[in-house]
């Protein structure tokens, strides 16, 4: 059973055709880096997988459960809201802009969803949160507000917050793109640790080093399509497609 099975996904914003028939299977424990020029639809693809955008056509299955399916009229429907929420809980997402809750402390950010959404006991949630904070190296920041943290620290809190819901799959939407260069390392290290723990990860990134060293598979997208995919070695050393080649030459 695949963790994510997406078939022939189409998505348009008004007249702009952003995803033009994307198919993608993700295996358990697999780390996939999605690379490509801006505007190629990488982020939109992630957002469709977690229902932040609604697909127009195609099917999505998460861990064997139908999530969105194409009807006979050729339009896609999502399962009812309640099921959408249940399925989304298996996916964690980390955003480029963190989206931490500014009115909550670091600890408050992490325990919020377990306590409110999963009705977990507060003490238990705090225990889990403290463990996660230790894991991302921010145990001493538990009572700070997000505004008192650096970008790298914020992003690590955001990762801990997502992990607190015990997701089976983590989606990263350009997690280091809004960080100062010297702060990307601390975030990438946390992501490396996660990958070593066999977390299933989809990472939209411009960090070619990360894609090359950590990813099991690299997907190159351009203009709403998957142009090429394969193991990092092949994609970076000997891309078969011209567009992949010129993109990789540009960014390396």
């Amino acid at each position: 059973m695949y963790m994510i099975e997406a078939r022939n996904i189409h998505k348009s914003f008004d007249r702009l055709h952003v995803l033009k028939g994307i198919s993608l299977n993700v295996e358990e424990g697999e780390v996939i880096a999605i690379i490509g020029p801006s505007g190629s639809g990488k982020s939109t693809l992630l957002r469709c997988l977690i229902h932040l955008e609604v697909i127009d056509r195609g099917d999505i299955t998460i861990q064997g459960q139908p999530f969105a399916y194409e009807t006979e009229e050729g339009k896609s429907c999502y399962v009812p809201d309640k099921q959408v929420r249940e399925i989304c809980k298996k996916l964690g997402m980390v955003f480029q802009n963190f989206n931490l809750f500014p009115h909550k402390t670091v600890l408050g950010n992490i325990i919020e969803a377990p306590v409110i959404v999963n009705k977990m006991d507060r003490e238990e949630a705090v225990d889990i949160a403290e463990g996660l904070l230790k894991r991302v190296g921010l145990a001493d920041k538990r009572d700070n507000y997000p505004s008192q943290l650096s970008g790298g620290q914020k992003q690590r809190v955001a990762i801990a917050r997502a992990l607190a819901m015990k997701p089976d799959i983590m989606l990263f939407d350009e997690p280091t793109s809004s960080l100062d260069p010297e702060l990307t390392g601390e975030v990438l290290k946390v992501m490396r640790d996660l990958a070593e723990d066999r977390m299933t990860m989809l990472v939209v990134t411009h960090e070619m080093g990360f894609a090359r060293e950590v990813a099991d598979r690299v997907i190159f997208m351009d203009d709403g399509e998957i142009i090429e995919e394969g193991c990092p070695k092949d994609i970076f050393r000997s891309p078969s497609n011209e567009r992949t080649k010129s993109f990789i030459e540009q960014v390396l």
Partner: peptide
Amino acid sequence: DKGQYEGAKVLGF
């Protein structure tokens, strides 16, 4: 910011 709605939504709110 609409990111706050998205942040909440992906956590299952």
